[in-house]
Design a protein around this nucleic acid. Structure first.
Lengths: 174, 174
DNA sequence: TATTGTTATACTCTATAACTATA
DNA sequence: TATAGTTATAGAGTATAACAATA
């Protein structure tokens, strides 16, 4: 198989279909993220990352940095940076964990909850218009199942560069 | 419906399912992109954006900046920046279009083709391992169809912030 | 006047490595 | 010694606005 103009040699039809799926996937998500960023910034003055962090905190009341990092793709320093921004904006608090003085516990504030409440309807609106409008309910469930599987697949086996440090005990190799 | 710990008020079950799909989607793609970036950087010293641009040029031999911008999420200046990097690396050439001296035509070089050829097998390998391994052939086709529809849906109607300037004639409003 | 592209600039974000403190 | 987190710093990337040149 060859893509017009270049000899792609080993790219066989199944791989080509995979490439198409991959490009459609990443392009769609890039466009989607772009719009979501705008909406979150406009209505809540937060980024998509910060929204993710707030959503994680909303569900749990208090998380350590490490626990939070498990849900995001960031380096530890990047997370510290974002936590700093959120704290400065009054959306979260940081305190040390009495049971382990090394840890920092993050908790969402009332203002943080307000921000989530303020931003969430618009977020749902945007994703509905851009994502779900083009997708049947059936496909939506399928999409969720597929991507959940993909996410779990990526999260399990391969070395996560987002976690240069092993979080789980029992592993000693770098 | 409420997510533990906060009253999310208007978030009804269907919206909740949508949110779950959205988060799974973006999280999976973020993880995926991360790994792909590493592979491309390691094997070809290019970023994912640059890979996208090269792939677009491989298929067409010559594109203007505007045409290229249509396929990416970038601002014009961002594209100029990336084109500059690619040119400096010797992977593309820039020349002006004889038929419209305003335009800049990009073309991939032999070295650019070599880079694509060098990087593509690894790219396919990574996406296969991370994306397709968790997905049946059937689901893959479905995923491609769904995301293609989503992409087209986003690209058509709403105002694309990536194109602050209208590319198509006949629209005069800012 | 509208369009194509570049430049200058400022800013956001991310990662690496060194560092502190606790377990 | 290993782990949790922060800081310092450097680099990549992006966007905005002003600009030059062509249509």
């Amino acid at each position: 198989m060859s893509i017009k103009g270049i000899d792609l040699g080993d790219v066989q039809p199944p791989e080509l279909r995979q490439l198409q799926a991959y490009f459609a996937l990443t392009e769609a998500v890039a466009l989607l993220n772009h719009q979501v960023e705008q909406q979150l910034r406009a209505q809540g003055e937060i980024s998509a990352v910060q929204f993710e962090l707030l959503m994680a905190l909303v569900k749990t009341e208090s998380l350590s940095m490490t626990q939070l990092a498990d849900g995001v793709v960031y380096s530890r320093s990047g997370l510290t940076y974002q936590a700093g921004l959120l704290e400065k904006a009054g959306l979260v608090t940081r305190r040390s964990n009495p049971e382990d003085e090394r840890a920092t516990l993050l908790a969402i504030t009332d203002k943080g909850r307000e921000t989530v409440a303020k931003v969430l309807p618009g977020h749902i609106e945007v994703t509905r218009r851009l994502l779900y409008e083009a997708v049947s309910d059936e496909d939506l469930d399928r999409l969720r199942d597929i991507m959940t599987r993909v996410r779990d697949n990526i999260r399990t086996e391969p070395p996560r560069s987002a976690a240069p440090r092993k979080r789980r005990p029992g592993r000693t190799n770098p």
